[in-house]
């Protein structure tokens, strides 16, 4: 039978759900071992963060698409958390190979890393479900305009999690490497997010990028202080 957009979308959703069936809502034993190997166990901090971000996400989701969809928002978040754990595990495995270490205490206690990774996982879930079809509007790729209407298209998730585009950008490439089952369309979507950040969002007033560039120019002075994130 001929492939239709609906059939293609259904197949993508089935694939995503299928891939995540075995992942579970809790960290796997491998992931839990990585947490235990940390100097400071990140587990409690992660659970608290997930709870807080879950509430924020569900609230903003139902505000955007209507209170009838609050359950759907929660379902999307749950799928996002599964993908977040799955990708985190793969990232840590490849970092263990690369660095020959098992203690990732600094990374796993970095709130920005977790928020960026979860935001990317949720963006994949939302793009798979074609969440933008909930409402018209958002970023118009054809003419680069933005409408005032709120919807769930990228960069919506950055606003929900108060996340700097610059930090979201950092996880995209590693995310794609860690999750080889992502469909071509989703990879293309993440590339679109990447391009949007690089060409537009990262250069908005107040972007952390300007401060980082300033530090880079100041060079020596910045190095004398406690080494800032370069």
């Amino acid at each position: 039978p001929p492939q239709t957009p609906i059939k293609a979308a259904m197949a993508s959703i089935q694939q995503l759900r299928g891939d995540l069936v075995s992942s579970g809502d809790q960290p796997s034993t491998t992931l839990a071992t990585y947490f235990k190997n940390c100097t400071i166990d990140p587990t409690q901090g992660m659970l608290k963060r997930l709870e807080m971000l879950g509430q924020t996400f569900s609230q903003r989701f139902s505000q955007a698409v209507g209170p009838r969809f609050i359950i759907i928002g929660k379902q999307r978040f749950t799928l996002g958390v599964r993908l977040y754990y799955k990708v985190m595990e793969e990232m840590l495995k490849s970092e263990e190979k690369r660095l020959s270490v098992q203690n990732f205490s600094k990374l796993l206690n970095d709130s920005t890393f977790h928020t960026s990774l979860l935001a990317c996982a949720l963006e994949v879930v939302m793009a798979t479900y074609g969440e933008s079809s909930f409402k018209a509007g958002g970023y118009n790729q054809a003419n680069g305009s933005e409408t005032a209407e709120t919807d769930l298209c990228f960069p919506w998730i950055l606003d929900v999690f108060s996340l700097a585009a610059f930090d979201f950008y950092k996880v995209i490439e590693s995310f794609i490497k860690a999750e080889p089952t992502l469909s071509k369309d989703i990879v293309k979507h993440l590339e679109t997010c990447e391009n949007l950040i690089m060409e537009k969002i990262a250069w908005r007033t107040g972007s952390v990028l300007f401060e980082l560039l300033k530090q880079e120019h100041e060079g020596g002075a910045a190095e004398q202080a406690e080494a800032p994130a370069s």
Binding site: M91, S94, E95, R98, L99, F104, K106, L107, D110, T112, F113, K170, V171, E173, S174, I176, K177, P180, L182, K184, V187, L190, E191, A229, S230
Partner: peptide, 21 residues
């Protein structure tokens, strides 16, 4: 299997990008 261009040539892993190596 996809056409993504891995462009961050300087970085080798996520720890480095978050300054956590």
């Amino acid at each position: 299997s996809h056409d993504y261009h891995f462009g961050l040539e300087d970085h080798e892993g996520i720890s480095e990008l978050f300054d956590c190596e």
